[in-house]
Amino acid sequence: MSRLFVVLLTFMGGIVMTIQPSINAKLAQKTGVIESALISFAIGTLTLILIVSASGSGTIKGIVDAKWWELSGGVMGAFFVAVITCSVPRIGTTASMAIIIAAQLTIGILLDHFGMFGFKSLPIDLKRLMGILMMGIGIFFILKK
């Protein structure tokens, strides 16, 4: 898979990640926040079952060798979908996404700095800290009424 293709897929993932909370929030008006998250995950699970059935190259049997924390992504995903479904109608898509991105960048810097999960260590530097500070300033203005 080429680097450009990965970048484009990631960009498309960002687009979808921004649209999904509004769609889930509309569904939540009819079903409830947690119920909307459940429906979203159920449909996502069915979609993945079809994809794995058609073209999966890995093995689900590997789950028996997984550590407990390697399985925690589903819990984190459910938490994220429920929180963002709740926040978008209250503070807006822009504010919700800005806060999420700032949190992701902040934790990302720490994960990189300490080489967490066995990945390459990338030390914290002034440029990265300034980027996060500017995100914080941007969030302040986005939330300011």
Rank of each mutant, 00 (worst) to 15 (best):
T31Y: 11
V83I: 15
G62C: 08
Q20D: 09
A98E: 03
T93P: 01
T31V: 15
A37H: 02
K120G: 02
M17F: 14
V64P: 05
I124N: 00
G56F: 15
G58T: 09
G13D: 08
F41P: 00
I109Y: 02
G92C: 08
S22R: 11
F5T: 11
A102E: 06
G14Q: 10
K30C: 09
M130I: 15
L110S: 05
A37K: 00
T45V: 09
V33K: 11
I132N: 02
I109Q: 01
T47Y: 11
P123Y: 02
V7H: 07
S36C: 09
K61S: 13
T18H: 01
G108H: 11
G92E: 02
A54R: 10
L50S: 06
V16W: 10
M12Q: 04
S57A: 10
P123I: 02
I109W: 03
K67C: 06
G77R: 06
S40N: 15
S96R: 05
K30H: 14
A54T: 15
G13I: 09
F5S: 07
I19Y: 12
G44H: 13
T31H: 07
I19W: 04
F141N: 04
S121W: 01
G108S: 08
S22D: 04
W69E: 04
A103F: 11
F117E: 02
I23S: 05
V16K: 08
I132H: 00
M134Q: 03
V7K: 03
I109F: 09
I49F: 13
V33E: 07
G118C: 03
V81E: 05
A102W: 10
G73W: 05
A98K: 00
R3A: 08
E35G: 01
S2V: 07
E70A: 12
F79G: 06
L122K: 11
V75T: 12
A42K: 00
R128E: 06
G13T: 12
L50N: 03
S87Y: 11
L105N: 06
I19G: 03
Q104E: 06
G138A: 05
I101E: 00
I51F: 15
V33M: 07
G74Y: 07
S55W: 12
I49L: 14
